[in-house]
Design a protein around this nucleic acid. Structure first.
Lengths: 191, 191
DNA sequence: GTCTATAATAGGATAGAC
DNA sequence: GTCTATCCTATTATAGAC
C-alpha cells in the first residue's frame, strides 16, 4: 500500500514530479527504471526513495494523482462553467491541445493502461476518464443537446481524441492530431 | 538489421509467433522479457535465439510483419471488394471486432508506439496504419461519399476505434467498445 | 536530504554439449 | 533443435556515512 510520502511537500519534490510525469507518460510504468529517474533528475537512487518510500509504485501513483488533478482543473471543470456550449467545448479542446502539446506528448492514461501499472494507479486514471466522459455528456445536455445521444457523443469525442493522439504519434505527424481536434470541436458544436 | 530467421519456417515457429504476438500486444516492447517468452512458451532462452537470431528486436519485427499481413487480409482487403458500402464497412467492422476480441485484446500498434520499440517495427506498423486509413477513405469515395470529406471521415473512424479500445480497456468495460463499433459503422454508412 | 556502497535479482545474449 | 551453463550489465531496493 504505497502512501504518498514524507511530510515536507516542498519545491524540490514538485520539480521531481514534473520530470516523473514526463517519464511515465512517454514510457508507461514498466519501461521507466529508477536509474532513468536518477539520471533524468540528477538525484541519487537513494534520494528518490526518500521522496517515495514506496518505490516505483509510489511514484506512479503520485504522478497519476497529480495529473488527474490537473486534468480536472483544466479540461473537466470548464465543461461545467455557466457559459454557452461553444465556450465550454472550446475551453476543453484548448486544454486538451495544451495537455498533449499539440500531439507531441503521449497520454498518461494510455501509457499506464498498456504497460501493467499497479492497480491503484490504474484505478485513479480510470476514475479520471469516467469523470471526463460524464462531464462532457452533462455539458452537452446542459447546453440543449439531445439528452439521449449525449453520452454516446461524449464517448465518441473522447475516443477520437485519444485515438487521434495515438495515430498521430504512430505516424509521427502531429498536424493530424491538431486537425482532428478542430473537427471534433466542430462536431460537438453541431446541433 | 534484424532479419527474419532460419530457413525452416515450420509449425513450431508459427505457434511460437502466436504466443509472441499475445505478449507484445499486451505489454509492448520493453515490458516483454526473454525470460517471459521462455516461461510462456516452455522453450529455453537459447532455443529462442535459434528462431530469432536477432534477439528481441527480431521477435518484435517478425510479430509486427505477421500482424500487418493479417490486418491487410482481414480488415483492409474487404474495403476494396467490388460490393456496396454496407458490405465493405460491415466486413471491416466485423474484422476489427474479431481482431480486438470484442475489446479484450489490445492493439499492437498502440502498444508498440508507446513503449519504445525498434525503429523497424514502428515503421512496419506505421505503414500498416497509413494503408488502413487510405483504404477506408478510398472505399468511401468508391461508394459515393463526398470525396473531399472522405479522408477526414476515415481518420475520425479509425481514431474512434483505437480510442474506444483504449478507453474500454482502461475502464475494464468491453461492452462500450462493442457499442462504439456499432455506432462507428452506422456513421460510416450515413450519407 | 543527499551521497557511496552493496545486496539480491532479473535482464539480454552467447558458447558449447547433446 | 533444445538444453545447461555462463557472462555481463541493469534492475529494485536497502544500509549507513555525512
Amino acid at each position: 500500500m504505497p502512501t504518498t510520502a514524507p511530510k515536507p511537500a516542498n519545491d524540490a519534490r514538485e520539480a521531481l514530479l514534473d520530470r516523473l510525469y514526463a517519464l511515465f507518460r512517454t514510457g508507461g510504468f514498466e519501461a521507466v527504471s529508477i536509474g532513468d529517474v536518477s539520471r533524468e533528475t540528477g538525484l541519487g537512487k537513494s534520494s528518490l526513495y526518500h521522496y517515495f518510500p514506496g518505490g516505483k509504485d509510489d511514484m506512479a501513483l503520485v504522478v497519476a494523482e497529480r495529473a488527474a488533478a490537473r486534468v480536472r482543473a483544466l479540461v473537466i471543470a470548464p465543461l461545467g462553467a455557466p457559459v454557452d456550449r461553444a465556450r465550454r467545448i472550446g475551453a476543453m479542446i484548448a486544454a486538451v491541445d495544451a495537455l498533449y502539446a499539440g500531439g507531441e506528448a503521449p497520454c498518461l492514461i494510455a501509457a499506464m493502461t498498456l504497460s501493467d501499472a499497479p492497480a491503484a494507479t490504474r484505478a485513479c486514471l480510470a476514475a479520471l476518464l469516467r469523470d471526463w466522459l460524464a462531464a462532457l455528456a452533462e455539458a452537452l445536455v446542459a447546453t440543449d443537446a439531445a439528452p439521449d445521444a449525449a453520452e454516446a457523443r461524449a464517448f465518441a469525442a473522447v475516443s477520437r481524441i485519444e485515438g487521434a493522439l495515438m495515430i498521430a504519434r504512430a505516424l509521427d505527424d502531429r498536424a493530424r492530431f491538431v486537425a482532428e481536434l478542430a473537427r471534433i470541436e466542430a462536431d460537438l458544436l453541431r446541433d
